[in-house]
Simulated scan of single mutants.
Amino acid sequence: MVFLTALAPVAALYVLATTAAAYSTVSYETLESFPSPGDEFDIKKGSILAPILRPRVSGTEGNVAVRQHLVDFIKTQLPDWTIELHNSTSITPVSKGKEVPFVNIIATRDPPNVKTGDVGRLALVAHYDSKLTPEGFIGATDSAAPCAMILHAARSIDKALTKKWEAMGDDLDGLDEPKGVQLLFLDGEEAFVSWSDTDSLYGARALAQDWETSFHPATSTYQTPLDSIDLFVLLDLLGAANPVVPSYFKTTHWAYKHMAVLEHRMREKGLFKSSPNHASKLKMRNNKKRAEPYFLVDSEKADHGDFIGGGIADDHIPFMMRGVEILHMIPTPFPNQWHEKEDDGEHLHMESVEDWTRLVTAFTAEWMELEGHFDLKEQRRAALDEKSEFMIP
């Protein structure tokens, strides 16, 4: 991606955020029960994150290995999700006239017995390729950590989805607006030489173009797979300390405020590990509180305020150009290690990584209206035992 160009109280934020769309708030009890990634995000041996922390330039063995890891996780940990690989090829500035393969991973979970064209989806999106230069570039924030966040969030809400839809039974047929979740792991976001309209966003451009002309049956609620995306949530450059994420788009500011409410609520309850007021840090300072920093800094921006949505080129662009609504979770300014060799596992701020994971999980749970469908006792046990059975040998 490249550049192209005092917070409100929780109660007030809640009122603002609930005015835009029907939305089901999750309780504090549910927020507290979400499992931590724990050992699964260990940068050396963690089952989710560690396999992504390697060079993975499109068309290379590293890229193939990371893609296989993502697919294997979905197949083993999310067996009720459908997986599709979207293939395309393109000549790049360094391929000497040869076509380079780009493979997008699409994982989808829709309500059972509802036709594909009748389901609107929340899309959680990150790119899984890495930059060609500097040599050996890992891209931990860009975007290994976001990929790991999405995998963990999907698994955290998966059983609740099953429980909700099983409880509804035949009532699913009467849903006014059936909702599903889609994971998009996009290939070829990075430029091989210098960012341009043709040397960047290879996978995103190909997928958006194909989906624009892939039509659902004429009687469907949504005309194409692009139309089926109710909200495209793009995670990028997340995992450094003290991120500042503005609200970039006026039309999705309501969704941004929903996520901001969740951040405020979780900080208020001491659930953010990166907070200077987390219990573990307050104890060392004799319970003296400090000013609370926020990831989402535009929570009180007016809906008619100024928005800078066109200022950053990223994987959302080909979708936005075709009318898809975008919620872009990317910090401004970019992390100091952006496109530097230091963007590796050792430079991740793991407390922030875990906090973003919890925030994305909670946002997805609210979007899918899952309150009351989580097994809180089971999740508490999982939260206490952070050692995963899905570990690298």
Rank of each mutant, 00 (worst) to 15 (best):
residue 288 K to N: 13
residue 215 F to D: 13
residue 152 H to K: 11
residue 387 K to S: 14
residue 170 D to M: 07
residue 378 E to S: 13
residue 340 E to Q: 15
residue 341 K to H: 10
residue 282 L to S: 04
residue 61 E to S: 13
residue 387 K to A: 13
residue 255 A to H: 09
residue 304 H to F: 15
residue 306 D to I: 15
residue 309 G to F: 05
residue 364 T to G: 07
residue 166 E to P: 00
residue 218 A to T: 12
residue 137 F to H: 09
residue 204 A to E: 03
residue 238 L to S: 04
residue 372 G to W: 02
residue 364 T to H: 03
residue 12 A to E: 15
residue 382 A to N: 10
residue 367 W to Q: 10
residue 367 W to P: 00
residue 157 I to H: 00
residue 183 L to G: 01
residue 335 P to K: 05
residue 271 L to W: 04
residue 302 A to K: 13
residue 135 E to L: 13
residue 372 G to C: 07
residue 36 S to A: 12
residue 378 E to R: 12
residue 171 D to Y: 10
residue 90 S to Y: 09
residue 108 T to A: 06
residue 229 I to R: 04
residue 89 T to A: 12
residue 300 E to K: 14
residue 70 L to Q: 06
residue 262 L to Y: 08
residue 295 F to W: 10
residue 304 H to V: 14
residue 79 P to E: 06
residue 215 F to L: 15
residue 285 R to H: 06
residue 104 N to F: 06
residue 234 L to H: 02
residue 83 I to R: 03
residue 376 L to I: 12
residue 274 S to Y: 01
residue 286 N to A: 14
residue 340 E to M: 13
residue 21 A to G: 10
residue 278 H to Q: 08
residue 206 A to W: 03
residue 293 P to L: 02
residue 269 K to S: 11
residue 112 P to S: 04
residue 281 K to L: 12
residue 183 L to H: 01
residue 81 W to E: 09
residue 17 A to S: 15
residue 35 P to N: 06
residue 8 A to L: 14
residue 119 V to Q: 00
residue 103 V to S: 10
residue 108 T to E: 11
residue 82 T to I: 02
residue 115 K to E: 12
residue 134 P to C: 08
residue 144 A to S: 14
residue 200 S to E: 07
residue 102 F to I: 05
residue 28 Y to D: 15
residue 110 D to E: 10
residue 110 D to G: 00
residue 160 A to H: 00
residue 366 E to I: 06
residue 286 N to P: 00
residue 312 I to D: 03
residue 377 K to D: 14
residue 209 Q to T: 13
residue 364 T to K: 07
residue 183 L to C: 02
residue 261 V to H: 08
residue 4 L to T: 12
residue 69 H to L: 09
residue 194 S to D: 15
residue 22 A to W: 08
residue 166 E to K: 11
residue 337 Q to K: 09
residue 229 I to C: 06
residue 194 S to R: 14
residue 305 G to C: 06
residue 267 R to N: 11
residue 187 D to E: 08
residue 171 D to C: 10
residue 186 L to E: 06
residue 187 D to V: 04
residue 167 A to H: 04
residue 303 D to R: 05
residue 86 H to M: 10
residue 308 I to V: 13
residue 146 P to I: 02
residue 112 P to F: 02
residue 240 A to I: 00
residue 284 M to S: 15
residue 254 W to D: 15
residue 52 I to R: 03
residue 382 A to W: 05
residue 228 S to Q: 05
residue 19 T to H: 14
residue 332 T to R: 13
residue 222 Y to C: 04
residue 388 S to Y: 01
residue 133 T to L: 14
